[in-house]
Simulated assay, not measured.
Amino acid sequence: MYRSNRAAATTAATLSVLAAAIAFAAPQAGATVTSVRVENGQSFGSSADARGTGCSYAVTVITDPGKAVVVLDQIGDDPNTADYKQFQPYELVADASGAARTTWTPDRKGPHKIVVLELLEGDDFDIYLPRNAMNVGTGINLGPACAVLP
């Protein structure tokens, strides 16, 4: 019981520190992360970039081979007031081609950004923050496809 409370407190403190760091960091702050790609999969809906709640999307982070990265979902367009959620698993290691892959399942409507923290020596990290947010609508998971409503 003690251990799970301690882990929860550590995770909450880490997310708070990361959120503050992201809020004050300049976009594209010199990380070797070169891109973050979120596939649409078989989503369809009222916009060309349809993504919906409850539906899953493949995410690929391109960086140096063997590099460790942490992936976060920034919910909200303003980094000062945004909510941050960790991916599961939250820490990825790029393969020999430099690709680190995970799956994203947004749970709330609105603007989202996939933020990548590139882990450096010790507790240091660089931040890759995309300039544009993706808008997430209400998703209806149809198995292999996703219908997205505004």
Rank of each mutant, 00 (worst) to 15 (best):
A29E: 14
Q42R: 15
T10A: 15
A145G: 04
G76T: 06
F24S: 13
A100K: 05
S43A: 15
L142Q: 08
P144H: 13
A50Y: 00
D107W: 03
G54I: 02
T81S: 15
D73Q: 14
P111K: 03
L119P: 00
E39W: 01
H112Y: 13
C146W: 14
A68V: 08
T105Q: 13
L129Y: 03
A50T: 02
P79R: 11
R108D: 05
L119R: 11
T102G: 08
V38W: 03
G110P: 04
I114F: 07
N132H: 09
D77L: 11
G66M: 09
N135G: 11
P111F: 04
A29L: 12
A26I: 14
A23L: 07
P27Q: 12
S56N: 05
A29G: 05
G45I: 00
D64H: 12
G45D: 01
A26S: 15
T102Q: 04
R131L: 13
V61T: 05
S97K: 08
K113N: 10
T60W: 04
A20K: 15
R108Q: 11
A82R: 09
L117M: 06
G110M: 03
A68K: 10
K67V: 14
A99M: 02
A13F: 04
Q74T: 04
A133E: 11
A94L: 10
R131E: 12
I75S: 07
A31T: 15
G76I: 09
Q42H: 14
T105H: 06
K109E: 10
D107F: 02
E91M: 14
F24I: 13
D126T: 02
T60E: 06
T63I: 10
S97L: 07
S97R: 08
P130S: 07
A25W: 09
I62W: 10
T34R: 15
A68C: 03
S16I: 03
R51N: 02
N132K: 09
T34G: 12
F125W: 04
T10V: 13
A13T: 08
A94S: 10
F87S: 06
W104A: 07
Q86R: 10
Y90T: 06
A133K: 04
F125A: 04
S47T: 13
P106R: 05
T102S: 13
T34P: 11
V36F: 09
G137L: 08
P27N: 13
G45L: 00
I62A: 12
A19N: 06
G45E: 00
N141V: 05
T60P: 01
T53I: 02
A100C: 05
Q28H: 15
T60M: 03
A23W: 10
G98W: 11
G54P: 01
T102L: 09
T32P: 10
N135K: 06
A68R: 12
C55W: 05
P79N: 10
Y128S: 04
I127Y: 01
P106V: 09
P106K: 06
A99E: 08
T32W: 15
G52L: 02
P144D: 15
A58H: 07
A145Q: 15
T63P: 06
K113F: 08
